[in-house]
Design a protein around this nucleic acid. Structure first.
Lengths: 321, 321
DNA sequence: AAAAATGATAGATTATTATCTATGATAAAT
DNA sequence: ATTTATCATAGATAATAATCTATCATTTTT
């Protein structure tokens, strides 16, 4: 008989190590991640390669790449681990509990409501461990392309990546002005009046800015931009200090709703209605824990929305969906 | 944190032992099959059950059954091993070879041509190991329902089981008579003349018998049945001894084609054209080695048919398919 | 050229897995 | 009641897997 590969000699541990190296494209980073020393990783990969009989990784200088076969093995690893993970969830169901690890990455603005939701989620599913990552949209898209998380929370789903997107909550954009601004006590302010005000803007490319620019374009009005700032946190004190007005997500006002520094203006056409989306790669089946969290999001976002969105001038919640 | 299942602690070996027990529904038979002692199997199952934290098997008296969860784990085992097996085939492809194990079960009559085909198959694919099982139709259907093999060879595919069936060779049913029978030298014998002869039949339910009965019914003729015998091997000497004539698959005459004991009659309407089929469950993707063998079957059955079917009175081979 | 970064190898140790023999417990058959 | 069949447990042994420290080899960066 010929010298043929017998995958029965492979261990799950070897496959885990391989998967970590394949994902990191680095022995050293995989070792760090797994709390092992680098030689351990090197040996495990060597053993696996010896069993398979063909190279799984190739090294060019200091950089590690997957061979075609290595790529196939990575797919097999992920399928296998997913099968085992789903069996774990099945067991948890039988035991009347839900367990597993949820890897969640959210855009910066979502940090205003996600922790509270996660708190409730943990109370309901104490067996599910959550790894939360807060980062900007660009990094989220990068992680999405590399399939690094179970779920991603952001405003507008990306157009250039094939994803499955579920909206779960309203994300209205509101006009902020100093608490004592002359327009603060008016109702149904015409947009043309607002256009006379100087605006504080987010950086080009930010979803909020694009939405505002498009809105003004549609009304044939021009924006008077006084200043650009890189984050909502920077914009809010600038508004309060009278440098200008701004349009931000209502969620950014989590702590300022009853303050005497910032007011939400009642402007005709506002708030601009947008949605929060939970997305995952279209080619991937959502993990069990991701699915549990998504269902939870859809259920619980109602009360979360009520917490933030009541009292916003001109805002009427949509009906059930 | 709760006491939760971690399937990373499971070994592939444990899963193999579990699969054998689940298939055999017996620790002792699984141990025999794996060349282990029974206590080894018992301990492996115990370890696996301890890791999972819920019963996978249940014992009623001396009989072993799968729990629902055990059934799920069996599915996971099969999926996992199939994935590993397909990766092995991928490796073999890369190495320019085909390897793996083909589990093949065939009906009794196919034993006349399958060994020769398997010989050629082995010469072409020395890395593929074949496990051949020859049994009756009823047992084949049972194995088919339990998904125990890669491929099954039989005449008519079952109607009550959802299968994928490929026909690969003609299986004509011919009329056999003693070599010195008065009809042996006649051409184009009318069926009405044949109906005056006493017949030796296979058992009720056999495919050959059903086809013959249907054929006579369509011609409005009755069969004169002298005797029923349980196998082709029993029928042939009875024909040669003058007890009556019979209709059997041409393949059963593998060794008697040039003998001076049995002749094939040239009867109007004969041979009854039938096909050999290779089948596998419709819900299952054919294994890689099964697919290799099926392709081989389709290619090689042409020459195999030529070996058996030339010279059969009234038989014209069909065109290419 | 020297230093830093990164994977490979050698040797050793520890932990874990796999298996056996012997025996016990229980159910089924005689 | 006795025997047979089948799984479970105890104790022991051997094999294998996993990991570490130390060092080497090579590439990249400074």
């Amino acid at each position: 008989m010929i010298n043929k590969t017998n995958m029965n000699h492979v261990t799950l541990r070897q496959l885990h190590v391989f998967e970590a190296v394949a994902r990191n494209l680095s022995f050293t980073r995989a070792a760090d991640e797994l709390h092992l020393t680098q030689p351990t990783v090197s040996i495990q990969i060597k053993q696996l390669t010896d069993i398979v009989g063909l190279p799984l990784l190739e090294q060019i200088g200091k950089r590690v790449f997957l061979t075609d076969l290595g790529q196939e093995l990575l797919v097999l690893c992920r399928d296998t681990f997913e099968g085992l993970s789903q069996f774990e969830m099945l067991i948890s169901d039988r035991k009347g509990m839900k367990t597993g690890k949820l890897r969640l990455t959210v855009v910066t603005t979502a940090k205003y409501f996600i922790p509270r939701l996660l708190g409730s989620f943990y109370k309901r599913y104490p067996g599910i461990e959550v790894s939360l990552n807060v980062t900007n949209r660009e990094m989220i898209l990068h992680r999405l392309e590399n399939n690094e998380d179970d779920l991603y929370i952001l405003g507008q789903p990306p157009q250039h990546i094939d994803v499955h997107a579920d909206y779960f909550m309203e994300n209205p954009l509101v006009v902020l002005a100093p608490y004592d601004h002359p327009l603060a006590r008016e109702k149904n302010i015409p947009l043309s009046r607002l256009a006379e005000e100087p605006f504080l803007m987010r950086e080009p490319g930010s979803g909020t800015r694009l939405a505002l620019e498009r809105f003004f374009n549609e009304q044939g009005l021009a924006l008077k931009i006084r200043m650009e700032l890189g984050s909502s946190e920077a914009i809010k004190p600038a508004v309060a200090g009278g440098l200008g007005i701004a349009v931000l997500s209502a969620h950014t006002l989590a702590l300022e709703r009853n303050s005497q520094e910032i007011a939400i203006l009642d402007v005709s056409g506002f708030p601009i209605r947008r949605q929060w989306h939970a997305v995952y790669p279209a080619a991937k089946r959502l993990s069990v824990v991701g699915s549990v969290f998504l269902d939870f999001l859809k259920q619980e976002s109602r009360s979360e929305a009520n917490r933030y969105l009541v009292g916003i001038p001109g805002f009427l919640p949509v009906g059930e969906n």
